[in-house]
């Protein structure tokens, strides 16, 4: 195999990894703070894609309006997430986790149907914005500018989150909420607001991932379930609730998938699943996670 071919596979894996990171980091943040495993996270991702498609129709396809559409879609999903948390999910805290799982699973079914009713069951597509339509020859590999943008966006978002969580007062409050909600509220914090805020941020990431993925793949019903399975694998590998773990998990997932295809062409997901199974046995809390209390 030629080195440039391998490099191409590597870049492909990296692009996939950064998309996965966007989505899985939202899932992981929500779990880390609220201790809720949100099955509907994949549905938020899918709705982000559909909303972006819709907004692109309004602002005009093949224009720089794409960016506005993507941002609008992500914000729309953040608001949707906020409403879901405030009006529905909130009533299930303190109950058994099974109820939360069932509830978010019901959301998957409902939102899936809403998407089908609104946008039909056909494939929809969105073009790349003109500014990133070109491509680049990198060591003999043709890389679309758009993919480079995604590859750079992932670490940028990771660094922003790291900075906010570790170095700002808001981040410290979020980390305190993740550790001891009751104590934080006794100190005067309205923890309900912190929860809603975090759920919105996590949903924003799902919506943004969905919106930004539209120029690279078509929008179809079922992308919600496909992505949530992948995002779960990522957070299990990296460690649920661990931010850098999610980043590492996404990188590993992307590369194993990308190179696994060469070895088992028709069972590429098999390699990733096998990896997840091994990690679950050896280190059930993931590579960078911590055992749950």
């Amino acid at each position: 195999m030629e080195p440039s071919f391998l490099f191409g596979q590597f870049l492909g894996g990296l692009t996939a990894a950064m998309f996965l990171f966007l989505i899985a980091s939202g899932l992981s943040l929500i779990f880390g703070v609220l201790r809720v495993l949100n099955f509907a996270h994949g549905s938020f991702y899918m709705l982000g894609a559909y909303l972006a498609f819709q907004f692109v129709q309004w602002v005009g396809p093949r224009t720089e309006g794409f960016w506005l559409a993507a941002l609008g879609a992500a914000c729309g999903i953040a608001v949707l997430g906020g409403l879901v948390e405030r009006l529905l999910l909130r009533h299930l805290y303190g109950r058994e986790e099974l109820y939360q799982l069932l509830f978010t699973y019901a959301l998957v079914l409902i939102l899936g149907d809403v998407a089908k009713i609104t946008w039909g069951t056909g494939q929809l597509s969105v073009s790349r914005p003109p500014s990133l339509e070109g491509s680049l020859n990198l060591l003999g590999v043709i890389v679309p500018h758009y993919n480079l943008f995604i590859i750079l966006l992932g670490p940028t978002i990771a660094l922003i989150f790291w900075f906010v969580l570790q170095r700002t007062s808001v981040g410290r409050i979020v980390r305190a909420a993740a550790q001891d909600r009751e104590m934080l509220s006794s100190l005067g914090a309205n923890v309900g607001m912190v929860y809603t805020g975090m759920f919105m941020v996590g949903s924003f990431l799902a919506g943004l991932g969905g919106a930004l993925v539209t120029p690279t793949q078509s929008i179809v019903p079922g992308m919600d379930v496909a992505i949530i399975v992948e995002a779960f694998i990522v957070v299990v590998i990296g460690g649920l609730g661990s931010f850098w773990g999610t980043f590492l998990g996404a990188l590993i997932f992307g590369q194993v998938l990308s190179f696994g295809i060469l070895i088992f062409p028709r069972f590429s997901i098999f390699a990733v699943s096998a990896l997840m199974a091994v990690i679950l046995i050896v280190r059930p809390w993931g590579l960078l996670g911590r055992p749950l209390r």
């Binding site: 007062s169 410290r172 409050i173 980390r175 305190a176 550790q179 001891d180 104590m183 934080l184 100190l187 005067g188 914090a189």
Partner: peptide
Amino acid sequence: FAELTTWENLDVARQVA
């Protein structure tokens, strides 16, 4: 808050007070 430093514990309390 075991994962926060002494100062971070105090900062959180000050911010939410």
